[in-house]
Design a protein around this nucleic acid. Structure first.
Lengths: 214, 214
DNA sequence: CAGCTCACATACACGCATGTCTGTATGTTA
DNA sequence: TAACATACAGACATGCGTGTATGTGAGCTG
């Protein structure tokens, strides 16, 4: 079944070629989307940066919209793999919300993190399928955060404040903004993300060493 | 010189016609830019929503870029008129930074506030004149905020933290994000903006009544 | 009121990006 | 190895949006 794995050899099985090409195109598209947005994204440049032509792109993806949707899905999956589990592993809602903020700041050190913000800004208010996909992901994230905020308030760990839904909206905006504006400015990105989130939730500033649970 | 002011009459002086048409086009362009962004902005729609055709638009503005630059300038002027003086009137740096955050949240209740965010996201990383204009305004704002942060830290009103420049970057992002994500959700927009900013600066939560200087 | 200028509309030309179609080389199967 | 399927390149056709050039009516000036 399996042939010898010689990574640099062009002679591979077709399924492998297909997957490899798809990944290359997806990554180039993600970079392009985060840099230029959807409307300004030129498919010939995407294919070219991936080492192919538009022929390959249209062979792997139905059209520009399909490509963008695939990128969104890919980014969402990598985000879930790298960030979401941090919240699930946290012992309580406050720790989860702070871990999420810090984890997202770390995630934003890769440029592809800009994709979600770029596309959301571009498609907010439209009824475009890509905008819908982005919006759905955001709504799910907000619902998750709102539940964490409610739980934290019920247990007394988070003081009272604006409704959980509004607070969660602000939380998403703040976490994303800090991540984007300070992308790569370690360690200030995580530090400032935690600070902003603590303030949003009405929590007092952390100690100087500042590591939650440390 | 001055003729009788009959606002509903179409018979006006040419300079007045010109100014009136320019304002209408500018406002339509601002709405269009905040909704669709620059690349997706169709000039025929702009002119149409203002009650004119592209002929009028190209008579008043050199090209699409010139129109966008005029919109940016117009938004900046209204922002300075409505928000900036709040900071100048504040008695100390902390009050200025909080007043700026609350004032911007109020300003964001108008939809045109989205213009700056939309264009910054769209042009970040490009070398487009519109992007440069937006970037310049943002840099000036950040420098202003960084100075306020430094002053507040020197006087002991703001505790130590990440460098003023990075903190100011985060401040801009946070204030803008809260304003956009909670546009019109009064009174939570101003409340959450202040909370986020206090957290960013390392200040403890305000009291429940929370009105700075109230 | 005659001639000029301005505000604006309509019609045309061009470029650019998407999507499709056809051709070719590389894998796969009998 | 012959016949077929797949991965990809290149050329073509179309639509859409900007910018320009021309035309028309309303205001200004002698």
């Amino acid at each position: 079944m399996t042939t010898a794995e010689t990574p640099e050899s062009p002679r591979r099985t077709q399924a492998d070629r297909r997957a490899r090409t798809r990944s290359a195109l997806l990554e180039a598209a993600a970079r392009g989307l985060s840099e230029y947005g959807y409307a300004n994204l030129v498919l010939e440049r995407v294919a070219s940066e991936a080492g192919y032509t538009r022929g390959a792109l249209y062979h792997l993806f139905a059209n520009k919209e399909d490509l963008a949707l695939a990128v969104v899905k890919w980014v969402e999956e990598t985000w879930n793999a790298e960030v979401r589990h941090l919240a699930d592993a946290a012992p309580d809602p406050v720790a989860a919300l702070i871990a999420l903020a810090r984890g997202h700041a770390v995630y934003c050190r890769r440029e592809v993190a800009r994709v979600m913000l770029t596309l959301r800004v571009e498609f907010t208010g439209q009824s475009h399928p890509v905008g819908r996909a982005i919006s759905d992901i955001g709504e799910e994230f907000i619902a998750h955060c709102a539940a964490l905020i409610s739980a934290g308030r019920s247990s007394g760990a988070i003081p009272a404040g604006p409704p959980p839904q509004e607070t969660a909206h602000a939380y998403l905006g703040v976490v994303e903004a800090v991540g984007i504006h300070l992308a790569g400015q370690a360690p200030y990105d995580t530090e400032l993300a935690e600070r902003a989130v603590r303030g949003l939730l009405g929590l007092p500033p952390a100690d100087q060493d500042g590591q939650a649970g440390g």
